[in-house]
Design a protein around this nucleic acid. Structure first.
Length: 528
RNA sequence: GGCCCCAUCGUCUAGUGGUCCAGGACACUGGCUUUUCAUGCCAGUAACAGGGGUUCGAGUCCCCUUGGGGUCACCA
């Protein structure tokens, strides 16, 4: 029988910043569908708004996609038979299509200035149904439009919407009918001659032979416009599927603005863009796995998926209709789990990526460089720590990863091992810890520290085994338990009661620094 | 506000008329393991928004209400 033509899907971001998690899920689903069906994934850059164009954002989006491991078959940097893949390079196509519509009367020049439109809107906003662009009667002729433009008037081209209801057959939502009364003659060409999103999108979907459009539900109301345009131009209508929206835990739509709001409140900005998750020390495996489950599920109890397992299990039928909240706690749990299952080599590589990204000055703090407006970000303490961690060899890093197993993000890992990179003088002894572990019971902890320090000071060579032997011999000589000795040591070397396993911690720190810190710690002892 | 979409534990979800006093995961609580923190293991609390129908039987189908969301640009 007739086989369906090869599936062609696209992801079409606009270069206004980093790749957002919502966008990431959209690409993921498109990628999965393409992979699953032997189709093609096209990456198209929708850069028709010169005002909102953000420098370097294409590069950033591509980098984020690569970090996630979501490759594209056609598009920037890889080319393809249906280029260009930047809309800014396709102006002649749009122009020709507009002309066609103009000539057959399906589009017309509209002469209102933005100011006039705003005034009309203001006047009509209280009418039942609100503002809807009133089609001029009679329509301006082509000659009138051209003349007005020549006279310096900003002239746009509007599409003449057919007066019929439009039905969208959505693969997720089913049949959705949009009443004609809701549809207005929308702009397809701006006064600067550039196409609007709707128009460029439709022309390119056709030009690139797109068969399936998988996009966020915020595009649902755009679809009737696209369908009407396709009909007027004699184009094919692809299959549409609109994905549920991703929310914050608060229930609001997850947006880049959340970061600015948090900063304004003096709170740490939440991760919103893919890059944020990378910089915060998440594994792409975990991010991908987690977002795949936002709006999709395999139908059974499985929750952990690699990209290829996802490809295997993914079907459009199992995409849900309900909006999903982005539960950071669950992501954290996924990430911890993935850190334990990707294997040593992969984990090390990911760690080094994390450290590298963070060792650079924090230019990546805001998704929109001009938005924070707070001046150049300072070189953060964590940037310094990351840079120092990077100076360690792979063997040490691997070992640090192993003894800290159970961390949720690399950022958390860095916090756990930070004491190793700090100057001895920079250790601040936490008052509560000192009181509890050292000063309590007439300074029993201080005594233990002094006793064990004597034994440590004569160790050579300085290894886990020799350190353990020294501590154990002090334990048996004094009758103390491991905790009685280990906790004072922890306070001495980290300033508080938490550290990786004590023998490893001491060995890694080195003999000199250890003794140094113990000495400094002993100075916190108050005379009785 | 108009139009459109959606509605199962706090969260992500399974459930496609009977096998559901609703299953899994995260979170939470308790216990065990443990040199600290964490991890790990075990157990527990917790949901079909409300009201009408249809049906022998409804979380599952229909309607209404309520609630949530999306969208109403010369942005994409």
């Amino acid at each position: 029988m007739s086989t369906s033509p090869p599936m062609r899907l696209r992801f079409a971001p606009s270069p206004t910043g980093y790749l957002h998690v919502g966008g990431a899920r959209t690409v993921l689903f498109n990628w999965l569908l393409a992979r699953k069906n032997g189709g093609t994934l096209i990456l198209r850059i929708e850069d028709t708004d010169r005002a909102r164009h953000v420098e370097d954002s294409v590069k950033k989006i591509l980098a984020d996609l690569r970090w996630l491991g979501l490759t594209w078959d056609e598009g920037p940097e890889v080319g393809g038979a249906y280029g260009p893949y930047f809309q800014s390079e396709c102006l002649p196509h749009y122009y020709a299509a507009v002309q066609r519509l103009l000539e057959c009367g399906d589009a017309y020049y509209a002469l209102e200035t933005p100011e006039e439109l705003a005034a009309m809107r203001e006047r009509m906003k209280d009418q039942p149904g609100g503002f809807k662009y009133p089609r001029p009667d009679p329509l301006p002729t082509i000659e009138q439009g051209l003349a007005a433009r020549a006279g310096g008037r900003p002239v746009v081209v509007r599409f003449r919407m057919p007066g019929t209801d439009i039905r969208v057959n959505d693969d997720i939502l089913g049949r959705v009918v949009l009443p004609a009364a809701e549809l207005e003659d929308f702009v397809i060409q701006k006064s600067d001659g550039w196409p609007t999103y709707h128009f460029a999108c439709v022309v390119d979907d056709e030009r690139m032979r797109i068969t399936h459009v998988l996009r966020g539900q915020e595009h649902l109301m755009n679809t009737p416009k696209h369908i009407a345009l396709q009909k007027a131009l004699g184009f094919n209508t692809p299959f549409y599927a609109h994905l549920p929206v991703i929310f914050n835990m608060s229930g609001s739509k997850m947006s880049k603005r959340d970061k600015e709001r948090a900063i304004k409140r003096g709170e740490p900005p939440p991760e919103i863009d893919v890059h944020d998750f990378r910089a915060a020390g998440y594994l792409p495996e975990a991010v991908l796995n987690f977002i795949a489950l936002l709006g999709w599920n395999p139908g059974d109890d499985r929750e952990r998926f690699t990209l290829s397992e996802l490809t295997e299990a993914f079907t459009i039928e199992r995409i849900g209709k309900t909006n999903a909240r982005f539960d950071r706690e669950k992501l954290l749990s996924f990430n911890m789990d993935w850190c334990g299952r990707v294997g040593e080599a992969r984990l090390l590589a990911a760690l080094k990526d994390y450290l590298t990204v963070n060792a650079r000055p924090a230019v990546n703090a805001g998704s929109e460089p001009d938005a924070a407006g707070a001046g150049p970000p300072p070189a953060t303490a964590s940037a310094t720590l990351a840079a120092r961690a990077l100076t360690f060899g792979d063997d040490t890093l691997r070992r640090l990863l192993a003894i800290c197993a159970g961390f949720k993000t690399f950022a958390q890992w860095l916090g756990k091992v930070a004491f190793l990179f700090m100057d001895d003088d920079a250790i601040e002894f936490d008052e509560k810890s000192v009181r509890k572990v050292l000063a309590a019971s007439n300074g029993a902890g201080y005594d233990a520290l002094a006793g064990v320090a004597d034994r440590l000071s004569v160790i050579d060579p300085w290894t886990v085994a020799s350190i353990q032997a020294a501590i154990e011999s002090h334990m048996s000589a004094s009758g103390l338990k491991l905790g009685d000795v280990a906790q004072p040591l922890r306070v001495a070397i980290t300033g508080a009661t938490v550290s990786p396993p004590i023998f490893d911690s001491l060995e890694l720190l080195g003999k000199e620094a250890t003794l140094n810190r113990i000495r400094r710690c002993q100075q916190t002892r108050k005379p009785v």
